[in-house]
Design a protein around this nucleic acid. Sequence first.
DNA 1: TGGCCAGCTTGCGCTTGCTCAAAGTTGCGG
DNA 2: CCGCAACTTTGAGCAAGCGCAAGCTGGCCA
Lengths: 235, 235
Amino acid sequence: MAEKAKIRSLPKFAHLPQGDFDQVYAAAAGRSFAAGATVSEQGDVATYFFVLLDGRLRVTQVTAESQQVIVRIVNPGDLFGIAKALQRTDYPGTATAVSDSVVLSWPMARWSDFMGNYPSMAMSAMQTMGTRLQEAQARMRELATEEVERRVAHAVLRLGEQSGREEAGGIRIDFPVSKQDIAEMTGTTLHTVSRILTAWEHAGLVVGGQQKLLLKDRRRLALIGDGEVPGLLGG
Amino acid sequence: MAEKAKIRSLPKFAHLPQGDFDQVYAAAAGRSFAAGATVSEQGDVATYFFVLLDGRLRVTQVTAESQQVIVRIVNPGDLFGIAKALQRTDYPGTATAVSDSVVLSWPMARWSDFMGNYPSMAMSAMQTMGTRLQEAQARMRELATEEVERRVAHAVLRLGEQSGREEAGGIRIDFPVSKQDIAEMTGTTLHTVSRILTAWEHAGLVVGGQQKLLLKDRRRLALIGDGEVPGLLGG
DNA sequence: TGGCCAGCTTGCGCTTGCTCAAAGTTGCGG
DNA sequence: CCGCAACTTTGAGCAAGCGCAAGCTGGCCA
């Protein structure tokens, strides 16, 4: 089974002894989701946790006033839906496939089991949480101190880093991103995002299109993000 | 040693077998810090990790433009300075004592050791990170979607919850908090915080004072925080 | 007891970016 | 090839809250 070899090679599982891996693998169920489908829903009882094998997911939370916020993008190899690690019995957010996706799932009941018996998985889970915590704090800092244009710069750079693919002329964001999506990542409106990206496109920093984004000048974007350059709005 | 018994009773260590606890305890060094002293500094090589025994710490990060952000408040019993868990070799933030404080410290080199050999400590560390991650995400959501007055309401309620003491007439925040501090927690300016708290004080929701804060009407504050009530500014 | 300093209050003008509104664009299914 | 739906652009007006500036308060130390 080609899939098994592929999974074996994920950093997440690479350090697991072969016997342990076989057991972990045996407990897993694979499942496919078409773009637009919901993998797990905010508030539902968390019955499974997952690893994304292929595709791309968007994790959102909806506030009491039904404003949506994009918490993160899940990339292949990432662990998600680990409610148990957050001391929760329900999923804190909704995971939606933005491209056709394949996930591996385990019953949540096995979580403590895995953590207790496979130290290398526990380590890996902890690393995941550490990375996420740092990203969350970075975004907090941005939201608290930066104006919109810088936040958008950071957001698209992050997208490029985590979900980008080198391409002639720049870094292509590897799944459909709408202006609305970027707005929900940065705490602004799609209108403002549109204005900013249009200005950047005129300056040759990016190339846009319907749910498409190509970063052409990463360095200048970073300068805007770090506030070392005035920003292009209002010019 | 009375201190040892006190430590033993912390939830963090309560589930550790006695032998393990003795070993962990033997590796620890205690240290006191006067209010205002710095326990660990952003960017320094992370040589120790800590548990706060007594007092209160403020963890801040400074942005490239030297704007300060308060990441969290450390309360007695909390683990902090766990750079290793975040895959870092340096401290991501500065921890400063806001009251006279006592901490227990371990060499960072022991971290993997502890995590590998004492599963109940690993579990507890994971819980800590889970809690923090959720709090960070909640604050992200607030910063992205709520206006200032609601964010301030959430911030003071959180302070009350995590660091408050019941008192005749309300919940007293148990350490000195300045308006500037609240501003740095909510991503606003001390001016705006001052205006908001003044309005609330007139309405009988809180009582302020130099670096003092008493929450008198938790329920109405929660209503403001949840946006179910117009807010008192501009009245 | 007087001076000093950190922290706080308050007023005013101005900017950022939001809201509302309307029209333009793109891609897909039939 | 048409029509529709989703997505995007652009404009105009407006308000939340920031920056600046000036003055106030209360605690602490000489």
